[in-house]
Design a protein around this nucleic acid. Structure first.
Lengths: 245, 245
DNA sequence: GCTAGATAACTGGTCTTACCAGTTGACAAA
DNA sequence: TTTGTCAACTGGTAAGACCAGTTATCTAGC
């Protein structure tokens, strides 16, 4: 299609050292030779292992840190973590929010994901998740009683994440993580925005409990309807409240 | 909620130099003082500008490279690019595919996105996009005639991306980019898998053309139905063909 | 005058060495 | 047993050097 004059030759690709190191790390993780939580050799040891200079090692570690595969403790050491794109998202989120109404689109995508998750649930939800929902609802009740918006927001997020987790779809779960991380940036510093108002909080609690009860009673269609209504209300709430400020 | 004994004190956060530099870059981009395509100062100049050492500069550039904000040409220089997460995805995709049936979930998410895009289109599609669709269909026809699977695959991707682009949703567009990038990894080296078979290729062409004609005739419901059927068929094709090998 | 080739001045890629600052653990003193 | 100190780590940063590839300039040849 392109460069047909090449006659079978391909451009020479020169791989940088840090890339080579990165790939070896990924391979090791895939092969199971590196497991989550494990402490990596020190930078100076890695220098001997890979037979490269310390700056090269450090560039590779820097990237691993940004893509959320290792956590580095200054003076401590480097530890392998579960893939966590939060640091990456934190970095680029300001650029994404340059797009007008991006936060509203986030709500849109979130709705899409959760409704799909409900569909995937099938006839009934696993008991283990029902238990989790019960605990989350309990936390919400406590938060409401103690008037603790922070705790309420945390439980709210947990509720929705569990919903998607129960669907069994890995990609929906990861995508929701991404959306939630971004939403937290959008409501920067006051992600408890809609939970400040006591009346709203009570309404949210009612919604969540109703969904929980529907799931428990295996009334999936009912649950799906409630989730849809709930998400629409949250979006409306958010838009109204953020418009007030 | 946690660490209530802190009494208002917060943990000391020490910001690393490379992070400071990264944030300044992002700020500059947001402020419009750095624009896409622009050549950045050389590493040695940046050393003077930021008054830090070259390794610190390089670590920051390394990260910017991975998150797809700059492209670095060895011996040439560093250039600002439109945010492109492909290098990032390329790095972590092997880890994502460790999850069983991840590629099937990708198809699922893609279907979700495109169907939502169709809904967002509303009553009619903008003429500019119709023109693009026309050109893409034309390329497909050529690819079919020339039996060029590579060209066909490229046009196929363009078709679906344009569909979402026309919806006007930035986040759907970016998410589809992500999904497509991952799908290309899944079909590594033979992303033209389903296009190898001439009969399949003809079928795909028929589908795309039918969708195009429906959009042109402003029969959106019809288009939505066709897209849904098309996506289901592609997924089935992919599963069957990959199972055969 | 114009082109082709050599040259010099870049640029990023890598390595080495060095020192600082924070963490950890062992050991001695209370 | 507890506390305090200290030495041996660890990552963070700086500075200087060299190589290899790119780019621009300038000269020699036509």
């Amino acid at each position: 299609m392109k460069n047909e004059r090449s006659g079978g030759f391909k451009p020479v690709v020169t791989k940088k050292i840090y890339q080579e190191i990165l790939e070896q790390f990924v391979e090791m993780i895939i092969a199971g030779k590196l497991v989550t939580g494990q402490k990596l050799p020190s930078e100076r040891e890695l220098v001997d292992i890979f037979n490269v200079s310390r700056p090269s090692i450090r560039e590779a570690l820097r990237v691993l840190e940004i893509i959320g595969l290792v956590e580095i403790q200054s003076g401590g050491g480097a530890y392998l973590t579960e893939l966590n794109i939060a640091p990456f998202i934190n970095l680029i989120s300001p650029l994404l929010f340059l797009k007008k109404d991006f936060h509203l689109e986030l709500f849109d995508l979130r709705e899409l994901i959760e409704r799909r998750a409900l569909d995937l649930l099938g006839e009934r939800i696993e008991d283990a998740y029902l238990v989790q929902f019960g605990e989350i609802i309990e936390r919400m009740k406590e938060a409401l009683a103690a008037d603790d918006p922070e705790m309420g927001a945390e439980a709210d997020i947990a509720f929705h994440k569990t919903l998607v987790l129960a669907s069994g779809s890995y990609i929906l779960q990861k995508t929701l993580d991404l959306v939630v991380t971004l939403l937290e940036h959008s409501i920067r510093g006051s992600r408890t925005l809609v939970l400040q108002n006591e009346e709203d909080s009570a309404q949210l609690y009612e919604d969540h409990q109703a969904i929980y009860l529907a799931l428990k009673a295996e009334k999936m269609a009912e649950a799906a309807r409630l989730v849809k209504a709930h998400l629409e209300m949250v979006r409306r709430l958010y838009r109204d409240r953020s418009g007030e400020e």
